[in-house]
Amino acid sequence: TTYKLILNGKTLKGETTTEAVDAETAERVFKEYAKKNGVDGEWTYDDATKTFTSTE
C-alpha cells in the first residue's frame, strides 16, 4: 500500500510517499524521515486517503 506524507515544517515543506504493509509501519518511516529533516510537528492521519500530515 502506498502512503503519503505532507510536511508543513517551518524550514521544510513538501511531500513524499512510501510503500508499507500498514499505516503503523508507514508512520514509523515518516516520523524517522521528518526527524532526519529537522521537522518536529503535530501529526494527523487520514485513512481514506492514506495520508499523514506533520505541521509545525
Rank of each mutant, 00 (worst) to 15 (best):
E15G: 07
S54I: 15
T17K: 07
T2K: 11
A34P: 00
T53V: 08
T25F: 07
D46Q: 04
Y3G: 02
A20M: 03
E24Q: 12
T18K: 04
K31L: 07
D22I: 03
L5C: 12
T1E: 11
G14V: 15
L12Y: 15
S54F: 15
V21P: 15
T11A: 11
K36Y: 09
L12E: 06
L12F: 15
K35G: 05
T11L: 12
K36Q: 13
T17R: 07
A34Q: 02
G41F: 07
V39A: 05
E24K: 13
E24C: 13
N8E: 08
E42L: 13
Y45K: 01
A34T: 06
F30K: 00
L12P: 04
D46H: 06
A26D: 00
D22Y: 03
R28Q: 10
A20E: 04
K10P: 10
G41Q: 04
V21G: 10
V29S: 05
E27H: 12
R28W: 08
G9P: 03
A34V: 06
A26V: 02
W43E: 01
K35S: 10
K36D: 10
V39R: 03
L5M: 04
E27M: 14
D46I: 04
E42C: 12
G38F: 06
W43F: 09
A26C: 01
E56Q: 08
S54M: 15
S54G: 05
D22V: 02
K36N: 12
E19I: 15
K35N: 08
D46L: 03
E32Y: 06
N37V: 15
S54Q: 07
R28Y: 07
L7K: 00
T25D: 08
E15C: 15
F30H: 01
K31W: 06
A20I: 02
F52D: 00
N37G: 05
K4L: 07
T51A: 03
Y3S: 02
D47H: 11
D47C: 08
K31I: 08
T11C: 15
A23I: 12
T53F: 10
A26T: 00
T49E: 05
N37M: 15
K10V: 13
G41P: 05
Y45I: 00
G9F: 15
I6L: 06
V39D: 03
T55E: 06
G38M: 06
L7H: 03
A48I: 11
